[in-house]
């Protein structure tokens, strides 16, 4: 039995977090007009990825999953101090980026629903969302690589 099985939610929670962030990254990148330009939409079964409305809906659904997971975690935390978590950001930087992404994302969601936002504010929200997403991706990749290296080193020294 590994720690992932013992963590509240176990492996399913970990995989759901990975699924939500993975889908958010992919569908977010697909909002840039690049899927067709770089032939990704030409790959078998990927034609849908050039449809901005489909990928936008996917972004919403993955966002809802992430919000549910985070709120679930918050609920557990409120009832149970401490505890080990095998998923989610591990440092203040990761949490800050996630918070920025959620706040700016909420602004964009409000605009999409028809709430008027001044153009300069909306542009700032979009650019901050994009910048924070890029930072989150690189931080996550760095963390994964670092974690994998530490795991390999741990096995070698064991």
């Amino acid at each position: 039995m590994s720690i992932h099985d013992l963590t509240p939610g176990g492996r399913p929670a970990r995989w759901l977090y990975g699924l939500a962030t993975g889908l958010l990254v992919f569908s977010g990148m697909a909002q840039l007009p690049m899927m067709k330009r770089y032939y990704l939409a030409d790959l078998p079964g990927m034609a849908w990825s050039e449809d901005f409305f489909i990928t936008s809906n996917l972004h919403y659904l993955a966002g809802a999953l992430l919000l549910a997971l985070m709120a679930w975690r918050l609920g557990l935390k409120a009832r149970q101090a401490g505890g080990w978590w095998s998923w989610g950001p591990r440092g203040a930087w990761g949490w800050t980026l996630l918070a920025v992404l959620m706040v700016t994302g909420a602004g964009k969601v409000a605009r999409n629903a028809g709430v008027y936002l001044p153009p300069d504010l909306f542009m700032a929200l979009g650019l901050i969302h994009l910048g924070a997403a890029m930072a989150f991706i690189f931080t996550g990749l760095g963390s994964l690589i670092k974690g994998r290296k530490a795991e390999v080193q741990g096995r070698q020294t064991a």
Binding site: T21, S86, W87, G94, F136, A150, Q153, G154
Partner: peptide
């Protein structure tokens, strides 16, 4: 039980 090793503790997660 608490995590067996720091390496195991680092496993998983995105950031």
């Amino acid at each position: 039980a608490p995590p067996a090793s720091p390496a195991e503790a680092q496993k998983g997660g995105l950031s």
